[in-house]
C-alpha cells in the first residue's frame, strides 16, 4: 500500500545545526567572523590582502579560503603575514558548515580577533549555506556589470555588507553606480554599501572602520549578555 507522509523539514537542517555550533564556538572566542561571497575574480583575496596591510598590526586576523582546487589564495594571504589556510572542496561550488568545522579543528581561534571565510567564487550556492558567520559580505566588481544585484538577488538580499570593488576602473567601463546602489537597497534596505579600490587604496579605510565597529559592537553586546 502506498504511503504519503508529511515531512516539513528544512533541507539544510543538518548544515544549520553545524552552523549554530560554529556560531557558539566563535562567540566563546569573542571573535568576529565574516563570510565573503562573490563571483570569481571580483577581488575577495585582494581585499583581504589590503585588509591585512591596513589592520594587520592592530588586529589578529585569520583567513580560510574555499576553492575547488589549488592553494593559491591561502598562499597569497600567508605572504601578507596572516594565518591562512585553504579548504579544497574537491568539486563542490560552496563551503558548508561541516567542512568549516573540520577545517578549524586545528586552529587556535582564541588567538584571533577577526576570521574571514572566503567562500568559493560563486554568487548562487554559497548563499544558502550558513557557516556560523556574524555577517555575509557580497562583493561586486565594476567590471561585472551593473545588473548583478537583481540578477542574483539572493546574496544581495542577505549580505549585511555589499562592497563594490575596482572603482579605479570606473572611467573605463559602463557601470551605473546609482543603479547598483538602488538595486542593493531595494533588496536590502539596511545593508552597508561600500565602494573601494585596492589598487589606489580609495575606500579601504571605510571598510576597515566598519570591521572595527562591528567587532566592538559584537564584544559590547557579549558583555551585556553576561551582566
Amino acid at each position: 500500500m502506498r504511503k504519503q507522509i508529511e515531512v516539513r523539514q528544512r533541507l539544510l537542517a543538518e548544515n544549520e545545526r553545524a552552523a549554530a555550533e560554529l556560531r557558539d564556538l566563535f562567540a566563546r572566542n569573542r571573535m568576529l567572523v565574516t563570510n565573503l561571497i562573490s563571483s570569481p575574480g571580483s577581488g575577495k583575496t585582494t581585499l583581504l590582502e589590503a585588509t591585512a596591510a591596513a589592520l594587520g598590526h592592530d588586529l589578529r586576523l585569520g583567513a580560510v579560503s574555499g576553492d575547488i582546487a589549488t592553494e593559491r589564495d591561502a598562499d597569497r594571504l600567508r605572504r601578507m603575514g596572516i594565518p591562512a589556510s585553504q579548504i579544497i572542496t574537491g568539486g563542490a561550488c560552496h563551503l558548508d558548515a561541516r567542512l568549516v568545522t573540520e577545517h578549524l579543528a586545528n586552529w587556535d581561534l582564541a588567538a584571533l580577533d577577526v576570521l574571514f571565510i572566503e567562500n568559493v567564487g560563486n554568487l548562487v550556492c554559497p548563499t544558502s549555506y550558513d557557516l556560523g558567520e556574524d555577517f555575509k559580505v557580497a562583493l561586486l566588481s565594476v567590471t561585472e556589470g551593473d545588473d548583478k544585484p537583481f540578477k542574483y538577488p539572493g546574496i544581495f538580499a542577505r549580505a549585511a555588507v555589499t562592497v563594490i570593488t575596482k572603482i579605479d576602473l570606473l572611467p573605463h567601463v559602463r557601470f551605473d553606480m546609482d543603479a547598483v546602489r538602488n538595486q542593493v537597497r531595494t533588496l536590502n534596505p539596511d545593508t552597508h554599501i561600500l565602494q573601494l579600490s585596492c589598487t589606489t587604496g580609495e575606500g579601504v579605510d571605510s571598510w576597515c572602520r566598519l570591521l572595527l565597529n562591528l567587532l566592538d559592537a559584537k564584544r559590547d553586546s557579549m558583555k551585556e549578555d553576561r551582566r
Binding site: M1, R2, K3, Q4, I5, E6, V7, R8, Q9, R10, L11, L12, S128, P153, G154, A157, R158, R185, T186, L187, N188, P189
Partner: peptide, 20 residues
C-alpha cells in the same frame, strides 16, 4: 516608502510518497 523583501529562502522537503 522603501519596501522589505520577505520570504524566498524556502528550501524544504514537504512530503514524500513511497511504496513499502
Amino acid at each position: 516608502s522603501a519596501l522589505q523583501v520577505q520570504g524566498g529562502y524556502e528550501l524544504d522537503l514537504v512530503e514524500i510518497t513511497f511504496e513499502p
